[in-house]
Computed example of a mutant assay.
Amino acid sequence: MTLSALALAFALTGCATAPSSNLATVAAYRDTIELSGRLSVNYQKDGKVESVTGSFDWTQRPGNVNVSLANPLGQTVATIDVTPQSATLTQGGSAPVSEADIDTLTQRTLGWPLPVSGLRDWLQGYAVDAQGQRFAASPARNEIVTKDGWRLRFMEWHDPNAAQPKPRVIHATRAAAGDIQDLEIRIIVNQA
């Protein structure tokens, strides 16, 4: 699995379910989280359909996000470290690649910006809508188009009847991103 394919894969995986009519609100936003999950990406590039799967470990602290990406066999193939000053991608056997921010880093390594900065919110059920307003997803209010053009659907929840459910499955789509077409990213977040 190439770095580009795995980094592209680091975004999302899941199964669709019908949204619940539960009116519960999303869990309160946390600056510090540790999550893991599985992911899958489907897209077209140069007229060819591509598909990539893997898993991730996500550690978020105030001012820092660390992501470890693994292939389907569980072997770590890349890590991403994001601070307010820089973003660094390290792949075994290769020199680290750094840029001023994560969007520039993914643009350089993938040819389009992977939404890692958005994932800080998405993994907790939040997003910024096309009008720049903060959106809090819930089982009854589970779909949004983000300010940067991603269509998000929060498909499943950990304990959807809880007072503050946490997202379990997130599906993101985008018609085009650089030379990538029909991008579909899914993530399953393991129970925290």
Rank of each mutant, 00 (worst) to 15 (best):
G92T: 14
T88W: 09
T79Y: 02
A100K: 13
A18L: 12
T104S: 15
T25C: 00
L114I: 08
G14I: 11
S20L: 10
G14D: 04
T106Q: 08
R38W: 03
T13N: 15
N22A: 15
I80R: 02
G118V: 00
G54I: 01
T104E: 11
W112H: 12
N42Q: 11
N42Y: 00
S68C: 05
V52D: 00
N66W: 08
T76E: 15
G63Y: 05
I33Y: 06
N64E: 15
S55E: 04
S40C: 01
S86W: 03
W112M: 07
P72R: 07
E34K: 13
G63V: 07
V116R: 06
L23S: 10
L89S: 13
A95S: 14
W58I: 10
T17K: 15
D31E: 15
L73P: 02
G54M: 05
Q75D: 14
S21V: 10
S51V: 09
N22Q: 10
T90P: 10
G92Q: 11
S51E: 03
G37T: 07
N22Y: 12
R108M: 08
S21F: 05
G74K: 05
G37D: 07
E50T: 10
W58H: 06
R61T: 15
V26N: 00
L69E: 05
T79W: 01
T104A: 15
Q91K: 06
S51N: 03
T79F: 00
L39R: 11
T32F: 05
P115I: 04
W58V: 05
G14P: 04
Q75G: 09
T90W: 04
A28T: 04
G47Y: 03
G118D: 14
N22I: 12
V65D: 01
S40I: 03
S21Y: 01
T106N: 06
G93Y: 01
N64G: 03
S51A: 12
E34Y: 06
Q85N: 15
G47A: 04
S68W: 01
S98E: 13
T83Q: 06
T76K: 14
W112L: 05
L114K: 09
N42F: 08
S94N: 13
T83K: 09
T106V: 08
T25S: 11
G111L: 02
V116T: 14
L73I: 12
V41Y: 03
